[in-house]
Design a protein around this nucleic acid. Structure first.
Lengths: 198, 198
DNA sequence: CGCGAACTGGGACACTCGTCCCAGTTCGAC
DNA sequence: GTCGAACTGGGACGAGTGTCCCAGTTCGCG
């Protein structure tokens, strides 16, 4: 590997790590597998990162930070709240179908963070980010639909995230687009009932 | 370890395996950790099971097979469909709160099964079992509420499972009972709208 | 009682893992 | 150009892994 500063190396390793985890899971993401994917030597890894755990923590944080293209911007669908929310969920489903490995990797990172108490804040931060995105999307949706949320937006967002997670997990198991769409429709229905026309 | 036939040993090892996975995750469920938990020697493990993977497969199947106390029987709540479904979900939440490690273990087993194509059928079977339970519960709920499902029950079940999964995952991250209840209420609302009074 | 099959414990194997070390190379600053 | 710091590759380490082997023990059956 040509010369490269530790600071430049970190993002390269993280990209490689994301690819390996998507392909093989966290269990398969050994330091050796990661440096092989990145095309560098093992020593470079521990020159750039203190440990594999520290690497995984930074990877999680970094991948979560840019988790935004999935839902936003909302597709420009008109209609009432139900339709707008459903369009948003359908858009998310498209994203999921386009890159299932990525979403599966996110799930695995969550579970990995859940396993050790000292990593729990990472999982919370991950979901904090999801919540921010969801709130933004929901506010936008209310604007589009000309409605207001009767329930505080953060609470609506929390329900939206729970629904998306469940739909994701089920789609990963069955790869059943119809079922996912049906669930998305039901979710949109439930969510839209937390809003009232303005 | 006192003398024991391979056939008797298998369930004992599986119980031990479930405890280890709940405590330490699949990654921590080494053959040595499992036999230590079961109080037997390493050789007994491979006398009873061909390999660790075969063991995990059988463990998954066995644990899924008896996954039923969580939802059924439905608590005897009267009321309309929304109330009955909500009561069922609340009951599931109680079960989740009582033994989070178990639900987390189930999630990990699903993801483990999703990782290798040859184990994918196991994940599907796991969800097939969930679907059966959900269908049973939904049919019972319709009876209780004196209503009928306007949508085929299997489809309602699939939505119910997606919602429960999502609520579970989010509760495992945040341990936020209020948020889980809010999501359960929203889910019950959406589901009940797939039924009509008889 | 005897005998063959079933089961046992302990040790060993080949391997992978995260991490570390160290002698070399390459760079930027002076 | 020199020099010190930054970076490199390769090899080694100790620990942990799944699996296997084998000499012993124990049991049920005849």
């Amino acid at each position: 590997m040509s010369r490269m500063s530790a600071a430049e190396r970190r993002p390269v390793l993280i990209e490689a790590g994301v690819r390996v985890i998507a392909r093989e899971g966290i269990a398969g993401a050994s330091t050796r597998a990661i440096v092989a994917e990145a095309g560098m030597s093992l020593a470079s890894f521990h020159y750039a990162f203190e440990s594999r755990e520290a690497f995984l923590d930074e990877l999680t944080a970094s991948v979560v930070a840019r988790e935004s293209q999935a839902v936003l911007p909302l597709p420009e669908a008109g209609g009432d709240m139900r339709e707008v929310v459903e369009a948003g969920l359908v858009r998310y489903l498209d994203h999921l179908r386009a890159d299932p490995a990525h979403e599966q990797a996110m799930l695995e990172l969550t579970q990995h963070a859940l396993r050790a108490p000292e990593r729990h804040p990472l999982a919370v931060a991950q979901y904090r980010r999801y919540a921010d995105l969801a709130e933004e999307a929901l506010t936008l949706a209310a604007e589009r639909a000309g409605a207001t949320w009767r329930v505080p937006v953060p609470e609506v967002a929390s329900v939206l995230i729970a629904f998306s997670d469940g739909i994701t997990l089920n789609w990963l198991v069955h790869r059943d687009d119809r079922a996912a769409l049906a669930a998305a429709r039901a979710a949109a229905d439930a969510l839209s009932r937390m809003a009232a026309p303005r």
